[in-house]
Design a protein around this nucleic acid. Sequence first.
DNA 1: AATTTTACCTAACGATCGTTCGTTATAATA
DNA 2: TATTATAACGAACGATCGTTAGGTAAAATT
Lengths: 229, 229
Amino acid sequence: MVGLLDSISLTSDRFASVIPLELAVTFMVIRKAIGARPRENRRGAVLDSAARSFALHGYAGTSIRDIAADAGVQPSSLYYFFKSKDELYEAVYERGVEKFLDAVARSMSKSDQPWDRLERAAVAHLEALLEDGDYNTLVANIVPRGDSELDQRLVRHRDRYEAVFFNLIKDLPLPPRTDRKLFRLTFLSALNGVAGWYRDGSMSPGKIATKTVDLFRKQLEPDGERTAR
Amino acid sequence: MVGLLDSISLTSDRFASVIPLELAVTFMVIRKAIGARPRENRRGAVLDSAARSFALHGYAGTSIRDIAADAGVQPSSLYYFFKSKDELYEAVYERGVEKFLDAVARSMSKSDQPWDRLERAAVAHLEALLEDGDYNTLVANIVPRGDSELDQRLVRHRDRYEAVFFNLIKDLPLPPRTDRKLFRLTFLSALNGVAGWYRDGSMSPGKIATKTVDLFRKQLEPDGERTAR
DNA sequence: AATTTTACCTAACGATCGTTCGTTATAATA
DNA sequence: TATTATAACGAACGATCGTTAGGTAAAATT
């Protein structure tokens, strides 16, 4: 409020010397409502809206106009921040990878035991996916096939993250002939698949993650003798 | 060939009485190349092309014109067979569910043991998904959220198939406190996720399915003592 | 032989798509 | 104080979108 009056009193405005202050304020308000805003960067809002729409309706199902409307901005303004729809999509995807990376890194501060480390990572992964949301949904759901230029860049971002689980699983004490690559791919699909059926209120993301890890590690349950081949 | 000449000799064609037979044949050929074909139903071809495109680029990423071009038909012709893009998509999805159902039903003719039955189903599922292809890819990849009318119909088709695994897993001798719902969801995500990383030549679909089932059942491997918590 | 049905076609509708253009008010800098 | 950079805007471009209308020749039916 003070800032608004200040900016009038400095008056680089071409009307200021001709019209009374009351009218100037009116003009300010109109201008504020319609057009140019004072020094405000909507890049973050645009990125958020893009993440939302892309997560909900996919790349092709989301139009530039959808995103712009959601962010309260004109369609053409997106091109001030991003060169193209592809670049915007990549920015969202990359941010999603970083959010995953951060979440998992934070979760693994301590604990040396391999299965515990995997469990912590899984919990962090699922919490990021289901609670934080849109950016991560994109990374979890879209497995780029690598046939377009955009896809190839997406794969590179995704690989950075998958490497984390590669290392986590490398340290796991598994039965000798276990296929660790298949384990990783299967495990990640299982975790990411949760986004497809999770409905708020049923079970907490952390709980789901823990139980999922248990599914993969249950050979040591004390009462495992009920099972048979 | 004989049929072609026959159709000329019956001559309900308005040129037939005016021009010689040679020229009539020429017209036939031209008409064959450009326009109206004799009694040929392209519905199957359209459905195949739709499955292909939808599997490859998704619903929004596929245009009616893409499908028509791939099927060698005019865009408007799709509306002779299907009322709308939505209905075409649903037809593909439904067919995908039926293909899955058939494949799994065929695979389970004998074998009483629960784990073996699940393994057979998994093998059939993955072979259908990775070898047969497009129709199944659609069902595997798209988990409808149920917010549109189309989505709600899709869910109903999908549920018919998931019920099969519900029953398969019900009979499994699992440790007492195992969450069978989570097992099913996780297991199906793991299987369907294979479509995201499978590249021809690495491992056969059947082998992947078998090993995936092993991952979920490995608690009875004889040398499982290497594992620790 | 005349009529109807089938299996398409050509042409076009208005809406929406990603993107570009030129403009403009504010803030930072010289 | 004049200039430049920033953060947008409104209007429009041609392309493409799902869909419809109306036509046409062959086949089936009457």
